[in-house]
Computed example of a mutant assay.
Amino acid sequence: MLAYIWAEDSAHHIGINGRLPWHLPNDLAYFKRQTSGHPMIMGKKTFDSFPKLLPGRLHVILTHSVECEKEYADNDQVVVVHNENALRKWLEEHDSEITFVIGGASLFKMFKDDVDLLYVTKIKEKFDADTTMPDLDMDRFALKYEEKGTTDEKNQYQHTFFVYERK
């Protein structure tokens, strides 16, 4: 089962210079809770934005980089695939579990007709950004869960967590 997880601002922005445009610890904790124990598919830029490998999750990286493959060849926490066909083959072999697509935008576009679950944090602010979430046909999804996030000293932006399931 394929799931997307991302956070976006009121203009559907999701990134700037390979990073999140905001700092929202509640969303980072939500991301960790949802993805722990599940494989995560990402592009190389998304992977490079992490300070280190995230514990308890398989990192499936779509990249043309042979160096990346060599660097993680002996690491059972990383799988490197070099094209969409190889990634789709990997997904077929792991279809029984929830696999999260975590970015970037090109991966969200690639699988928009295949995704079953959407985990989105909507932030009620607009930020400078250079990356926008691709349009998804939301008529094909039903709201399954909604929770307003807590705003406090560390989480300064109003935000809500949503989960949608394909109808």
Rank of each mutant, 00 (worst) to 15 (best):
M1C: 07
A3H: 02
Y4K: 00
Y4H: 00
I5E: 04
A11Y: 06
H12D: 14
H13L: 03
H13F: 06
G15K: 01
I16T: 06
N17D: 02
G18S: 04
P21A: 07
P25K: 13
L28T: 07
A29I: 07
K32C: 02
K32H: 03
T35K: 00
S36W: 03
S36G: 00
S36M: 02
G37D: 00
G37L: 01
P39N: 08
K45A: 10
P51Q: 12
P51K: 15
K52P: 02
L54S: 09
G56N: 14
R57G: 08
L58S: 09
H59W: 12
H59L: 13
H59M: 14
S65R: 07
V66T: 12
E67S: 13
E67V: 11
K70R: 15
Y72T: 08
A73E: 15
D74M: 09
D74K: 10
V78A: 07
V79H: 10
V80G: 05
V80M: 08
N83M: 11
E84F: 14
W90K: 13
W90M: 09
L91Y: 05
L91I: 15
E93A: 15
E93R: 11
E97P: 06
I98N: 08
F111R: 00
K112Y: 06
D113E: 14
D113K: 06
Y119A: 01
T132P: 06
M133V: 00
P134D: 06
D139R: 04
F141R: 07
K144L: 15
Y145W: 03
G149V: 07
G149M: 13
K154G: 08
N155P: 04
N155M: 03
Q156E: 05
Q156C: 01
Q156H: 05
Q158T: 11
H159S: 05
T160H: 09
Y164G: 03
Y164K: 02
R166Y: 08
K167D: 07
